[in-house]
């Protein structure tokens, strides 16, 4: 069976498991929304300033809480399940791809919910071509999903993996955050967003290449 077909089966199953777990819907989303409320309370910033930084805060919440999406409990496998996958898959890269696609889908959904919340409560000045932020968000979701999946493989079975994974994932997602942030700034200035899009595509390509190439290597526990 081809790598892509197996990856698709893994992605579908991962999404089904998350649907039953409800971790994103009932825990991560409310947590992210809560963070959006806590920041204004803690900083006591004027409304105008909050409006100015609204989109930026949204990206930060997506970055930090998006980590919980990619590193969610429902995506974790027991050592026995990991052994089973190693014996079942014709190409271990299918696991990386499948989990990345599932995480990207969930992250995209997370952004779809958080975006309107951020707009509703912070009333940011949206760029005229605000709809161009949608492909930016999609690429960000894909980049973060791949980064998070790779980090998940790196920390599997290690001590302190619960704390170590977000530290690694958040840092490595920095270039993606830069791309999204620059795209927002350029759109606000009515400039072309080709450069930040290219940056995000580069992150996706490099992370995909490293993730797939290292799949076999990272199998060993």
């Amino acid at each position: 069976m081809s790598l892509w077909k197996q990856a698709w089966i893994i992605a579908k199953t991962d999404l089904r498991v998350e649907g039953r777990s409800g971790e994103i819907l009932w825990i991560v989303l409310p947590y992210g929304a809560l963070a959006l409320f806590l920041i204004p309370i803690a900083t006591a910033l004027p409304l105008k300033t909050l409006s100015d930084i609204g989109i930026g805060m949204y990206w930060v919440v997506v970055l930090l809480f998006g980590m919980f999406v990619t590193l969610r409990q429902s995506s974790q496998s027991s050592p026995q399940e990991r052994d089973l996958m190693r014996l079942t898959l014709s190409d271990p890269a299918a696991l990386f791809l499948g989990k990345s696609v599932a995480s990207a889908t969930l992250l995209g959904s997370f952004q779809l919910v958080m975006g309107p919340i951020a707009v509703a409560f912070f009333n940011p000045a949206l760029p005229a071509q605000w709809w161009l932020l949608i492909p930016v968000s999609a690429l960000l979701a894909l980049a973060m999903a791949m980064t998070g999946t790779l980090v998940g493989f790196l920390v599997a079975g290690t001590r302190s993996s619960n704390a170590l994974a977000p530290l690694l994932a958040a840092g490595l997602a920095f270039p993606s955050l830069v791309g999204a942030s620059i795209a927002t700034t350029k759109l606000s200035d009515s400039q072309s967003i080709v450069t930040p899009i290219a940056l995000l595509l580069l992150v996706v390509a490099i992370t995909a290449a490293i993730g797939m190439a290292s799949s076999t290597l990272l199998e060993d526990q």
């Binding site: 790779l150 790196l154 690694l168 840092g171 490595l172 920095f174 270039p175 830069v178 992150v203 490099i206 992370t207 490293i210 290292s214 290597l217 990272l218 060993d220 526990q221």
Partner: peptide, 20 residues
């Protein structure tokens, strides 16, 4: 061995920060 393998993958990926 596991430490070396995983560090190697992370070390390769982390270098993206330098040009960034």
């Amino acid at each position: 061995i596991v430490r070396a393998n995983r560090s190697a993958v992370l070390g390769s990926m982390a270098f993206l920060m330098v040009p960034a």
